[in-house]
Structures are given as structure tokens and as C-alpha cells.
């Protein structure tokens, strides 16, 4: 059984996931040599760590379980530091870490599964083409409140922030070295789509969302534009190759080089077969 935060199941993409899982179950992978491999994999994997990664790993785990019915994958969230600590102490088979690995974590084997990228968005008709990091900080802390100050029209800025607990908020605050207490927002939103709609409906708004969502909407006629950061254009491509600064790798870590079940699961999580799940969670799959 997947024991994960029950609310993750409420996500709106539950339906497509269920569909794709159903189609997988219709074709049991029990033909020939593959069948014996499937029979061999048994046991239980405990995976703990970053709450950013937990919903994705839970979905991958569900699909993995449907491929190997004797396997149980238990996903618990509790932050990247818990992922590292649990993997080190052997409390978990695999840890989830939603950032680059630190120097003192070299003892762990780390496997990137996806990248998470966040970019600022403006309304398409906003004349501002780029903002320096300091300008974005000034806007979000309320020191700049009019677009005129950054080369735009004379209009008050509507600052769109994310609700507490969202990983996009975490990435954003971390990169700009801000604290959520210091952010002076006019609108607080939940998911990425709501952010896109808020900015699309307000010429003077600035927001930030996952790059996957922003890029999809911008290319499908929604009047928003993605702002570059540090001169790097915001796109899933620049996130994938690590050039975009407002992004981070999402890792699975183990204490020792993984074997058997853990190895199979990590390889599966890195494979092309889960790219659709990665995109559903608005992350960027790595090139393979």
C-alpha cells in the first residue's frame, strides 16, 4: 500500500493517472523472461523525505506496484533533511531530497530523477521585458510598488505570491534569499494554473509558477510571458540542462549503492516510462 499524505490523492490529475494505470494493468507484464523478473522482485521499500517529491514518488510507486504486484512502496514526507537523515541511519531504504546535494553528503549515492524550475511571469502586454534579481526582490518586499520604477507604465504592481507550503514558494524564496514574512503580496494563490489565470487577467500583475505550466500555457494562447532570470531564458530546456538559476534537481538518495529492489525502483524512476508522471507534477524530466 502507498501510505502517503492522503490529500495528494485529491489532485486534479488523479483521473489521467488512474487511466494510464488501468491501461497498464490491462497488459500484465508476465510474458517470457520479463515475467520471471517480475516474480523475483518482492518486498517493501520505505521512502521518506522532501514533501515536494513525495507526490511524484507516490505516483511512480503506484505504477511500480502495478508492474510488480509483490512489491510495496511506502512514501512518507517530512522534508529533505529527513530524507538525508533517514537514508543515512537506514530508517528508510531511499531518501528524497529536493535540492542539490551538499559537500558533506558525498557519502550518499544520489540519483537525480527530475528538475523543478520556477519562473516569474507577467501579462503579455506588460512592456517590461526583464527584471534584475534586485528589482524582483524590491517588488516582492514592497519597496517598488509601481511599474514606472522598473521601466514600465505608470500603474501599481499587483504582487502574486504562493500559499505557504508550496514548493514553488520554497524555490523562489530560497533563490532570492527572502522570508515569506517579508513578502508584501496583493494576491496569494494555490496551484500554478490559478497563478497563470490571475496574471493573465491582470495587466499589472507579477507572479511566479512552475516553468512546465507557464511554458505550456504561454504556447497555448494564454496572454502571459515568462521572464528570464540572470539573462537565461525561462524554458523547460534551460531547466533540464541546469542553466536556469531558479531551478533545482530532485534526488533520490541511498546510503550504499542500491541493489535489487531499490536499484530496480530507482532505475524505473529515472526511466522514460515515468516522464508523463513527472510532467503531471509540473516538474521537468531529465534528458536520457
Amino acid at each position: 500500500m502507498i501510505r502517503c499524505h492522503a490529500l495528494f490523492m485529491l489532485k486534479k490529475y488523479a483521473a489521467p493517472v488512474a487511466l494510464s494505470m488501468a491501461s497498464l494493468m490491462c497488459v500484465p507484464p508476465s510474458a517470457g523472461a520479463q515475467g520471471t523478473a517480475a516474480d523475483q522482485l518482492t518486498g517493501k521499500l520505505v521512502i521518506t523525505g522532501a514533501s515536494t517529491l513525495a507526490p511524484l514518488i507516490a505516483e511512480i510507486g503506484k505504477r511500480f506496484e502495478s508492474l510488480y504486484p509483490k512489491v510495496r512502496i511506502d512514501v512518507q514526507s517530512g522534508g529533505s533533511s529527513r530524507g538525508v537523515a533517514d537514508a543515512r541511519q537506514g530508517l528508510a531504504d531511499i531518501g528524497m531530497v529536493s535540492r542539490a546535494m551538499k559537500e558533506d553528503e558525498r557519502d550518499l549515492s544520489a540519483f537525480p530523477v527530475a528538475r523543478d524550475g520556477v519562473c516569474p511571469i507577467l501579462h503579455q502586454e506588460n512592456p517590461v521585458q526583464a527584471l534584475a534579481d534586485e528589482q524582483i526582490v524590491a517588488i516582492y518586499t514592497g519597496t517598488i510598488t509601481n511599474w514606472k520604477a522598473v521601466g514600465g507604465t505608470d500603474a501599481p504592481i499587483t504582487v502574486v505570491n504562493k500559499a505557504e507550503g508550496r514548493s514553488t514558494l520554497e524555490v523562489f524564496l530560497h533563490y532570492f534569499k527572502l522570508k515569506n514574512v517579508d513578502v508584501k503580496a496583493q494576491v496569494v494563490i494555490g496551484d500554478n494554473e490559478q497563478g497563470v489565470k490571475t496574471v493573465a487577467g491582470n495587466r499589472n500583475a507579477i507572479g511566479y509558477v512552475s516553468i512546465g505550466t507557464a511554458e505550456y500555457d504561454a504556447t497555448h494562447g494564454v496572454p502571459i510571458k515568462l521572464l528570464p532570470i540572470g539573462g537565461v531564458a525561462a524554458s523547460t530546456e534551460s531547466v533540464r540542462n541546469g542553466a536556469f538559476p531558479l531551478s533545482r534537481p530532485l534526488h533520490l538518495v541511498t546510503r550504499t549503492p542500491p541493489v535489487e529492489l531499490a536499484k530496480a525502483f530507482i532505475e524505473y524512476a529515472q526511466s522514460r516510462a515515468v516522464h508523463d508522471l513527472i510532467k503531471q507534477q509540473y516538474f521537468v524530466p531529465l534528458a536520457d
Partner: peptide
């Protein structure tokens, strides 16, 4: 002025809230 209601608070933050 923008406001947040108690119901919106739950709906906004429940998905990623822990502890």
C-alpha cells in the same frame, strides 16, 4: 483590500501542509 477566509485557508494550504 484582499482577504482570506478560513475555508480558503484550508483549501489553499492543505495539499502540502505537514506536522
Amino acid at each position: 483590500d484582499p482577504i482570506r477566509t478560513l475555508t480558503a485557508n484550508i483549501a489553499l494550504e492543505m495539499a502540502y501542509a505537514v506536522g
